[in-house]
Design a protein around this nucleic acid. Sequence first.
DNA 1: GCCCAGGGATGCG
DNA 2: CGCATCCATGGG
Length: 275
Amino acid sequence: MYELQKDKIIIYDKSDFDAKDILECGQVFRFLRQQDGSYRILSLDKKAIIKTYEDKVVVYTDTPKYFENYLDLKTDYKNIKAELSKFDELKEPIKFGKGIRILKQDFFEAIISFIISANNNIKRIQSIIEKICISVGKNMGDYYAFPTLDQLLTLSVEDFKSFGAGYRAEYLYKTARLLKEIDLASWESLDTETLRDKLTTLYGVGPKVADCILLFGVGKKDVFPVDTWIAKVYRDTYGGKLKNRKQIAKYLVSRFGDFSGYAQQYLFYSKRELS
DNA sequence: GCCCAGGGATGCG
DNA sequence: CGCATCCATGGG
């Protein structure tokens, strides 16, 4: 139960909404925990402040309609958690990350962000993305917007390296130029398999990054991104012997079906926070 | 000095 | 196909 107002969203049921769980579960990078415990979250050129109170959570923003969708408020997470709790190995992870929601991030922003994420750690990913925004993103007053493609195209390989992107600098430079020739809106309506193949034609996008883009930037839930943490889960929890991550992903999708994306987040978050 | 981080591109068989 | 190797960078 929530209420949309002109300058904020009020969420009355905290049991399926926790700012820390949502933002620190690894799905998104442009957020900041502030001194008072509230969170500032940025998406494209938009901003919201999430404050948690005793009996409610309030999302302060100029664009409540945008964040209603972004925060996936129309989806019933009680049902999702009930379905996934039928799997024994998910009961504890769901209890741990009970306030997780999968954000509906922008497709383009997700592509760029998860190229940067490859073989990287979250703190540095955040730093690189912020430097890109500051360098060419629109100045919004107290923050900078995520760049448009045209703005991104003004950056050189050396620029990306100066932001700390390392060898991903060339991926970003080359993919930006490929994206000039692509209509991303038409890609979003493709089925998961077809779109995964399209995405992996971009530089710096392999199977894992593609699955992250599909899950967080397109909203596909029949995917299971397998990174180093999920590979650990697979070994520790399932005693799996597969070594190929694409095969591990296929196995886990066959287990969780259209709830795979959610299951992945609960498992990833609990494994990373509790290890 | 080593290993690791939300891995991918390339080359070789 | 599968597999090995290389790839920047900062923190533990």
